[in-house]
Design a protein around this nucleic acid. Structure first.
Lengths: 271, 271
DNA sequence: CGCACCATTGATATGGATCAATAACTGTGG
DNA sequence: CCACAGTTATTGATCCATATCAATGGTGCG
């Protein structure tokens, strides 16, 4: 009964995406995946999809395996990581309800370059690889949506690359915090770390110890950190970690309030 | 005269992609961009495209600018880099004839997150942004091609991330060399560094000094390096830098010759 | 209440950046 | 063809940042 499951799932999508953000939040990528699709197109996808439950720490897909599906997180958290020969891991992405993964990997050919692991118990919507691959040739809008999603992953990966290669740990952390601040509602002075600190540390290319020291460093400049709860003394406390990419997300970037002025948004020319 | 320019350009594409690789080389991405397109579709794209010359060191597009076109390199070399506030640069990609760039960035929305700079004098085919964006909605095959291209950029970016965050400089260099070896003809004992050493060093997230010392290190294990020319004493000299991603490119990875055996291709599970 | 697990803090060691000097190479003009 | 300047690569010496090792403290769960 495709129609029943369709309604069922779409309902859950909306409710999954909404709670985190009545404000200016990006509302995940689920909107992006289905945006502008005709009812028939959506029905085609959803009638071939199914949902699945995973336990905390369960491997959803392993490095090297062929990707079975494109996944959309209905509830819970997931991370994608890469392991090297010695078993050290690099966290590529950390995901929450409303976000998709394996969306890019489906088109890479060959086995998955990452492991996907459930951080906590979660429920996933699974759209089979073959369905997705076939559907982009039938519905250009769907192809366009995927292109935007993948393209944004790539952009984030580029940011991750230069964060790791030219920024100090404190700068990387500040950048991450600012980003969270902007994503979780740029008008509030408070926000939360959505993941475990050690996991964020790995994502930012540093050890938990270094992460902790970086936090201590940042506390000195008007930011209170208590467990996962962050509160800034003033709304500009994190502004000197801004860069052109983040300023595009900031409601104050073009106003005269912005302490970085032109230099923030337009930087990049070394001459 | 769209038809004349079409033939003209397609001819140059073939000749640009061919010389580097009579062998097993990937033949760039130009094949990917136009693969499987109908003559009408190709004509549509090319009739709206034009070519442009750039001088060495000229900035083709700046960080923050709106991307005007998708570019295909007809001749010469190009790099894409990001600058941080202090003017330090991170090299994201280094490109040769036959490869495309700004292909992903066109779909990101907002200004370009990278600078593109001509490494040497070069000639580029430019397909206007609007043309590309419109065309993916008209030709699903074109959209699919772009999806594959962007997706591969993303995969490379992920490799770059864990190279930088968990490998030593020697390992990063070894990995890069092995990749060049496989791309430039996996059966030859010789290959060349396609770019300046200092540029490769930056791409690999290290200083030129460290790069140089890493080269010296690698010389000790049966690899001769003279300027840009590399020759390996035996075909397996670089094998211990292999990983699942590279083994997929290696003609010997599944044979019993492979010194890494199963461990190379299947690695990744820490348990 | 006690056991894991995670975060923090301190002490130490080390790898790669930085600074500095030299050498090799590239191209240019006499 | 050689001399020169400018660039790129190599090699050496030093220093500092961050990983590592180690111990403690806090939190949540059974």
């Amino acid at each position: 009964m495709p129609n029943a499951s369709l309604i069922h799932i779409v309902e859950r999508l909306s409710s999954a995406a909404a709670p985190q953000a009545a404000d200016s939040r990006n509302s995940g990528t689920c909107g992006q995946l289905f945006r502008g699709l005709s009812p028939e197109s959506l029905e085609f996808l959803l009638s071939r999809a199914h949902t699945n439950l995973y336990q905390a720490h369960e491997e959803i897909i392993r490095q090297g395996e062929d990707p079975r599906s494109l996944f959309l997180i209905l509830s819970g958290q997931v991370k994608t990581v890469r392991y090297n020969a010695e078993g050290q891991e690099t966290t590529i992405r950390m995901l929450q309800a409303g976000e998709t993964f394996m969306d890019a990997i489906i088109f890479m050919g060959g086995g998955s370059p990452v492991n996907a692991v459930a951080i906590e118990n979660c429920e996933l919507l699974c759209i089979p690889t073959a369905t997705v691959r076939a559907h982009i040739l039938r519905d250009p809008q769907f192809a366009s949506n995927l292109l935007h999603i993948v393209t944004n992953h790539y952009k984030n990966a580029m940011q991750q690359i230069d964060n790791i290669s030219i920024k100090t740990p404190v700068e990387r952390l500040g950048y991450y915090l600012l980003r969270q601040h902007l994503e979780q509602g740029a008008d509030s002075l408070e926000f939360n770390l959505p993941f475990q600190k050690s996991m964020i540390a790995n994502h930012l290319g540093m050890t938990p110890e270094t992460f902790s020291r970086a936090l201590a460093q940042i506390k000195k400049s008007g930011i209170d950190i208590e467990q996962k709860h962050i509160s800034m003394r003033d709304i500009f406390a994190l502004c000197h970690f801004c860069d052109p990419d983040l300023s595009a997300m900031c409601p104050r970037s073009n106003s005269s309030e912005c302490p970085n002025g032109e230099s923030c948004g337009k930087g990049g020319c070394p001459h």
